[in-house]
Design a protein around this nucleic acid. Structure first.
Ligand SMILES: [Mn+2]
Ligand SMILES: [Mn+2]
Ligand SMILES: [Zn+2]
Ligand SMILES: [Zn+2]
Lengths: 152, 152
DNA sequence: TATAAAAAGATAATCATTATTTATAATTAA
DNA sequence: TTAATTATAAATAATGATTATCTTTTTATA
């Protein structure tokens, strides 16, 4: 945890931004809930638990800043709010998501899986890929099993 | 054009919805601007040119309905508005997009390209894929050339 | 034709996000 | 150190996309 915070601190300093107490509190929430996909409001409420004096606008500003620095990725699952997701340490690309249309669960895939596709995009379209967003919609393992059980 | 309209009419009827004049006008705009990625507001303004009496809420309702029937796909490029994209005829999955971070252009890829990835998702995660969203962010061919020209 | 249901129009309400304005904390120059 | 300068935060107003509501119109059905 402290190691990750230090790393992020350095990334901020490299662009001459400071890791203020409010920013640190926000980053800590993101680290603590790394496998979740929190909205700005979610982050705000969680930060408030430890730092009740923080303002919502500050959380928005911090998330915006962290997005610019590619420390977090902004993602949209189509439910009307943006969600913020810490980039995995040292990852060049954003990771992928499996969204279950039955139960709403979100699983993460850290493996790249797109090397071949990116080669095709490069060769056939002449497009130089910098990043990507890949989300699969479907039915998660658990929901499949539950359906199978109900049917039998 | 008329053929596509007929097809969509049947898809609506199959779910006991009607192709009202307002819905038809909306669908015609989507067909005429098939390679674009229009927001609800964009669609509204274009429909108004031919059918000035239509209301914005009706356009929203129609786009929502067409989304439910998988005639259009709702997509979000992170600029604060939802965009609506006609699904290619007979396509099982949504097509892919190349978004240029320099000029903002959006290219479409109709080829699937994800067969292998979906197999891995199925086998390794037990996730049954129903649909997907894949967007690459990067630099389009033209912008690359312009940069090259400027440099030389 | 009378009645019921579906859809549309008009517009108000909601709500996520952004902008603004004022206050506070950190840096820098004198 | 003290006085500017700058960066950041807090509070809150404004914006703008989307949704909800309420009334009217159109379409289907008895
Ligand atoms: Mn994630
Ligand atoms: Mn498209
Ligand atoms: Zn599930
Ligand atoms: Zn470009």
């Amino acid at each position: 945890m402290e190691h990750r915070i230090d790393r992020i601190k350095k990334q901020l300093h490299a662009q001459s931004y400071k890791l203020t107490p409010q920013r640190e509190a926000t980053v800590r929430v993101l680290l603590e809930r790394e496998e979740d996909h929190l909205s700005a409001e979610d982050v705000y409420l969680l930060v408030k638990e430890k730092s009740p004096e923080i303002g919502l606008a500050t959380v928005y500003r911090t998330l915006e800043l962290l997005s610019e620095l590619k420390i977090v990725d902004k993602i949209n699952f189509g439910d009307g709010v943006s969600r913020y997701d810490l980039r995995k340490e040292g990852a060049a690309h954003f990771h992928h998501h499996l969204v279950c249309t039955e139960c709403g669960s979100v699983e993460e895939i850290e493996e790249d899986l797109l090397e071949d596709v990116e080669k095709i995009v490069k060769n056939d379209w002449g497009f130089q890929v910098k990043d990507h967003r890949l989300t699969f919609h479907g039915i998660c393992k658990q929901c499949q099993q539950e359906t199978a059980n109900t049917t039998t």
